[in-house]
């Protein structure tokens, strides 16, 4: 899905500049990369994998004061919280990364599924697999007994990371 998104955006860019040749080259190139990756790994390259790959080494997400989260290190898959250091499993790390890029905003379940698990995630896994992974992440973070939660969910809008407990989204007021 990640490579498809790139192909779509770059094709639009080429179309805007009236360059059919560039569009063809980009399209063929990205298809070859996708085929090469899937022949070696047996799966597609997901959006969050590309995000992790192109991220500068040592990148950290620092959260606002008052949040139980302090620092998130995506490459090490570690979260420094007020109670200690938490290690995230690879898929949980990718879910957290996707939400950390857009904090205080809900990301739809389908978008999360596609970005983390791949384009055909619904064919390969259960429709509740995103919910399952988020639940596991909540248990790891000790988020279940906390109100308001760090990872909030809302029907129709999806899941979102709200590091600052005082922030109230506009939805459903």
């Amino acid at each position: 899905m990640g490579l498809e998104k790139l192909q779509h955006s770059l094709s639009l860019l080429a179309q805007a500049r009236n360059s059919i040749e560039a569009e063809q080259e980009i399209s063929l190139g990205i298809s070859a990369i996708a085929r090469g990756f899937s022949s070696g790994a047996g799966r597609e390259l997901t959006t969050t994998e590309i995000l992790l790959a192109i991220m500068e080494p040592g990148t950290e997400f620092t959260f606002a004061q008052g949040s139980p989260l302090l620092v998130y290190q995506p490459h090490k898959a570690t979260l420094v919280t007020t109670t200690g250091v938490t290690h995230l499993r690879p898929v949980a790390n990718r879910f957290f990364l996707r939400m950390a890029y857009e904090p205080e905003c809900y990301v739809r379940k389908a978008t999360l599924g596609q970005d983390v698990l791949g384009k055909n995630w619904l064919l390969k896994s259960h429709s509740d697999s995103v919910k399952y992974y988020i639940d596991q992440l909540r248990i790891t973070l000790g988020d279940r007994g906390r109100k308001p939660r760090l990872i909030r969910s809302r029907e129709y809008f999806g899941y979102g990371l709200f590091p600052d407990p005082s922030v109230m989204p506009n939805i459903g007021l």
Binding site: L10, L13, A14, R17, S19, E21, A22, E23, Q24, E25, I26, L28, G29, I30, S31, A32, I33, A34, R35, G36
Partner: peptide, 13 residues
């Protein structure tokens, strides 16, 4: 090969 082709497309852009 894919990256080479992609780069040539980007060069045109």
């Amino acid at each position: 090969a894919g990256f080479a082709q992609l780069n040539s497309g980007l060069r045109i852009l």
